[in-house]
Write a protein that binds this DNA or RNA. Sequence first.
DNA 1: CGTGCATCCTGTAGTGACTACAGGAGCAAG
DNA 2: CTTGCTCCTGTAGTCACTACAGGATGCACG
Lengths: 145, 145
Amino acid sequence: MEAITHSRGDTFPIGELSRLTGVNIETIRYYERIGMLPAPPRSEGGRRVYDHHHTRVLAFIRRGRELGFTLDEIKALLALGGPERAPCGDVREIAARHLDDIRAKIADLRKLERLLGQTIDRCEGGTAPECPVLDILSPEPRRRA
Amino acid sequence: MEAITHSRGDTFPIGELSRLTGVNIETIRYYERIGMLPAPPRSEGGRRVYDHHHTRVLAFIRRGRELGFTLDEIKALLALGGPERAPCGDVREIAARHLDDIRAKIADLRKLERLLGQTIDRCEGGTAPECPVLDILSPEPRRRA
DNA sequence: CGTGCATCCTGTAGTGACTACAGGAGCAAG
DNA sequence: CTTGCTCCTGTAGTCACTACAGGATGCACG
């Protein structure tokens, strides 16, 4: 029940970084492997030693993923938001393109929702001679059989 | 410009099945490998020989994928819609669960759309001191820095 | 009958974004 | 010193494909 004491100076191991950010340990190592997250220094025993810089970057990545950005997009955003932080227009462009994708996906899903919802409702009524769900899936409307 | 003549009896090779259903050749072979599509008989030379039964099954799979069903769900639907075609309730359940998934995904995306849209708009006005898109991504609102 | 070339075959590996081990090493408390 | 947790590397699996490489087949045309 004691507070966990890290080695002095705000550094901590991977498990703590995982807890702090909500990102799976395996995923953190994966991010390092693919170059999303800078490789931290190691302890004498070879363990990764993180600090709050890593927390910030990793939380940024996590948030980006939650917002549906790909890792490549996030990598680009990280680069843009880096030390320079100059080209806000570039950032806006990535985000705007992503927003278009999201809107297209929503439109697609809405169409699906309508179709599937109506079909299931017909099924619920029990008025369908054969299963209407299978019928929207079947390419052949099996008329005159 | 002549109509392509298949060997008599409504059988055709994989390329034709691909054209008929709009499913990539590689994908058809993949479906066979994972047991989604029954393996067709082969010609003397070892080529796959399909007939309209395969067309129907493959088109069913394709439609299911377009509707966002997983291959496992489609496999289940195919089994349910098979020779027996009895338990319409089971079919409805799979579809209903899938509809729930779709609705949840739509809700998620809508939230995202709002957040991202508003943020980009703020950026467009040019009134933001630093890039607002990066700011929603950043976990630390950098107040008092 | 030969030739060219489109189509087909198998097998393997790559994609994106992880997740799940196996098999071992380190480390701190009791 | 032992227990048990955390950590390490490396590999392989997931989902639904896609993309080759390297070779065989089949068919129309000359």
